[in-house]
Write a protein that binds this DNA or RNA. Sequence first.
DNA 1: ATAAAAATTTAGACAAATCTAAAAAAAATA
DNA 2: TATTTTTTTTAGATTTGTCTAAATTTTTAT
Lengths: 222, 222
Amino acid sequence: MLLNLSYTEENYIKAIYRLEQDGKPVNTNDLSEQLRTAAASVTDMLKKLKQKKIVHYKAYYGCNLTDNGRKHALMIIRRHRLWEYFLSKKLGFNWDEVHDIAEELEHVGSTSLINKLDAFLGYPRFDPHGDPIPDEQGHIIKLQNKLLSAVPLHTPVEVVQIGDQSANILELLNEKNIRIGTILEIRKRFSYDQSLEIKAGGKQITQISKELSQNILVQEHE
Amino acid sequence: MLLNLSYTEENYIKAIYRLEQDGKPVNTNDLSEQLRTAAASVTDMLKKLKQKKIVHYKAYYGCNLTDNGRKHALMIIRRHRLWEYFLSKKLGFNWDEVHDIAEELEHVGSTSLINKLDAFLGYPRFDPHGDPIPDEQGHIIKLQNKLLSAVPLHTPVEVVQIGDQSANILELLNEKNIRIGTILEIRKRFSYDQSLEIKAGGKQITQISKELSQNILVQEHE
DNA sequence: ATAAAAATTTAGACAAATCTAAAAAAAATA
DNA sequence: TATTTTTTTTAGATTTGTCTAAATTTTTAT
């Protein structure tokens, strides 16, 4: 049912999916930045993906995934997140090491491989960063998480997801002993740079920059 | 220490390693057949691999792996066989389904991935087809197995390895209930086509073609 | 030893994905 | 609205791995 796509095409689809979250069309320039590829190359690829009915594309307007394209995206994400779970839970990698390896493994396309891996792992619903794993049909749990930056003072919240997947952010969070499940509470908010002073895990006090606070997703804690 | 190679280059190295087993130089034509690629393309690639010091190559003569090339080959084989073991033992695939998937997984190059996978699997020494798995240093157990075609009549032997890895042969062996560990005994040998009549697993009588008998490796059974 | 056959390499072309530089369109600004 | 700036596309070139057809070298057979 789904076409066989090249490694490169899959990376474009993933990037479009990521940038598309609000329904608006995705710019060529934003895509070119996301993929670190010249804008001219992106234009070429978008024409190709249009031909394959993976994106809607109009010159000078931008692109969106078709229903079919979105299915592809969800399958790639499913593969990526299942491998991340495997690497972290079975092979003992740290959560800040799994992303790059999963980035390669996700392109191995066999459907039966992924479904058997899913079963082997016990049908996990979230990857080690707290992101939901789409099921075999491409259904994905929608979370109503808040950004830490939007949480009021003195309200205990639980870390449930990290927005950015770079090794850099995960290294920083490790340093501060913040991981999925950690309870946070904001003590002060500095309006000068919108940085925060928080209590992490019930005792440790630490400073959080604006950028970081916009990449930590939390839920209320009882 | 080892260079980063493309998917394609790795496939050439694997094919050369396979054809090189007896130390003699590998012909361009044999390689081109093995890889299902035009001989002219093979010539081009051999020049490139020579530049990268992966093969010794002289025009009209043939090629051999350098010591460095052989190290690469052993690492690719290590990755392939560890994935085959994982697919078969952990995910529950049949042994005739694992080869093609491992063929893709083997190109994911992370060394720490493979070493952690090895540990997770308990450092297995043989893959599901009975082939030895090279260790982290590239050491590989040399087996002195016999081809079934070379075994005398009425001598019980144990299947320890399958030479050819195609799904076709494995399907045929499944049909005949022959797998690693099965005890075989040759009952008759037909000189017309060198086919065999054998007893498999102590009771079942079945016919084996010459081709098949040259791809079943066995050891003496007590 | 010489001619015929087989194997291998060279030459030139092609497809995929990329690039830079220039042109064109859309958006922002005056 | 006219002009400038930004974004996007077109044009033409590059790299990797591939192909076919022709030329060359090696091997085989007469």
